[in-house]
């Protein structure tokens, strides 16, 4: 996945060079655990994900910074 761009949960997720992640243009810092081959982010502190894209989709869906659910 050298360059990937998609819209998920009304958010634009972009992964450049397989490593540089942004959601709606905002750069997302994350950690990659080489030992477990898992990704995690400070946005979702209780979970790890099997791919950078799966993690990005979870951030878009579940964090109040990006979620579009209103009353």
């Amino acid at each position: 996945m050298t360059h990937h761009k998609e819209t998920f949960a009304n958010c634009v997720i972009e992964v450049k060079d397989g490593t540089h992640l942004s959601i709606n243009g905002k750069v997302i810092d994350y950690e990659y655990d080489k030992e477990s081959n898992k990704w995690s982010s400070r946005y979702l502190p209780y979970t790890q994900y099997d791919s950078i894209l799966e993690m990005a989709q979870a951030i878009a869906q579940h964090t109040v910074e990006f979620s579009s659910i209103k009353d």
């Binding site: 946005y43 502190p45 209780y46 979970t47 979870a58 579940h62 964090t63």
Partner: peptide
């Protein structure tokens, strides 16, 4: 134990703003 509780509730309990 702890992480599972957050994930089981889901929604607002998933991000760093979980005390919401």
């Amino acid at each position: 134990l702890h992480n599972r509780g957050h994930v089981w509730v889901g929604g607002s309990m998933l991000p760093m703003t979980s005390p919401n």
